[in-house]
């Protein structure tokens, strides 16, 4: 399958053109945000930079300072579902173009994505080194007081691979896999175990 090249911040028509199952290669400016950032942004906190169209990456990177410069040494996605209570509100208020993480998100987020035009990008969980190589620059850090993994890192990335698993048309690959595997589980439950030598 061919990779679609996309650039963050994402234009509205690009977002609308993405559908579940599209493999994408992302370049441009993105921000990280996980639990503390999501709590902060939904309890009256002002976003330190304009998030419209940007990719919000659920990621708590490992960062070190080398000769006064920030260096990301590992940067894979974290479980997105933890942000489910906050994500819809952030999408409708701050209008990011995409949410990137792992594991997918729930109904509320899916609805907000349809209403506001936003997609969910699934990155390869655990592939921290491959993904760190795609970060070509640390532009800056905000809300550092939340601790390194929880701060908002502004990054420039190049050719980061991901899969669209929730689109702005109400589709979710996660729902499909859940339903299919649930049917398979039922079938497997009907084949009781006996010891085979």
């Amino acid at each position: 399958m061919d990779m679609k090249q996309i650039t963050s911040p994402l234009q509205h028509d690009v977002i609308k053109g993405l559908t579940v199952g599209d493999m994408v290669s992302i370049s441009g400016r993105i921000v990280t945000g996980r639990d503390q950032i999501h709590k902060y942004l939904t309890s009256g906190g002002e976003p330190p930079i304009d998030l419209s169209g940007l990719v919000i990456y659920h990621c708590g990177p490992v960062v070190i300072k080398e000769k006064g410069q920030w260096k990301i040494t590992a940067a894979g996605p974290t479980t997105s579902m933890r942000e489910e209570p906050y994500q819809a509100q952030i999408i409708s208020k701050l209008r990011p173009g995409a949410i990137m993480g792992k594991g997918g998100m729930g109904e509320k987020t899916k609805k907000a994505m349809s209403e506001c035009g936003c997609v969910y990008l699934h990155a390869a969980g655990g592939a921290a080194q491959y993904l760190a190589e795609c970060i070509i620059k640390v532009e800056g850090v905000h809300l550092e007081e939340f601790g390194q993994p929880e701060a908002m890192w502004v990054l420039t990335i190049k050719d980061l691979p991901a899969l669209v698993t929730m689109d702005s048309h109400g589709n979710s690959l996660h729902d499909t896999i859940l339903n299919d595997s649930s049917k398979r589980l039922e079938e497997l439950f009907s084949q009781p175990f006996s010891v085979k030598k």
């Binding site: 399958m1 199952g21 493999m23 990621c59 708590g60 990177p61 490992v62 040494t73 590992a74 940067a75 894979g76 974290t78 390869a124 969980g125 655990g126 592939a127 921290a128 080194q129 491959y130 993904l131 760190a132 190589e133 993994p149 691979p161 899969l163």
Partner: peptide
């Protein structure tokens, strides 16, 4: 060409990188 193939490919490349650079396999250590 499948998503699964691509995912395993990324994982394996990442493992090689981490061991070569002696850096964390995953950011969640």
């Amino acid at each position: 060409g499948s998503v699964a193939h691509k995912t395993f490919d990324i994982i394996l490349k990442s493992i090689v990188l981490s061991s070569k650079k002696s850096l964390p396999i995953c950011q969640d250590t």
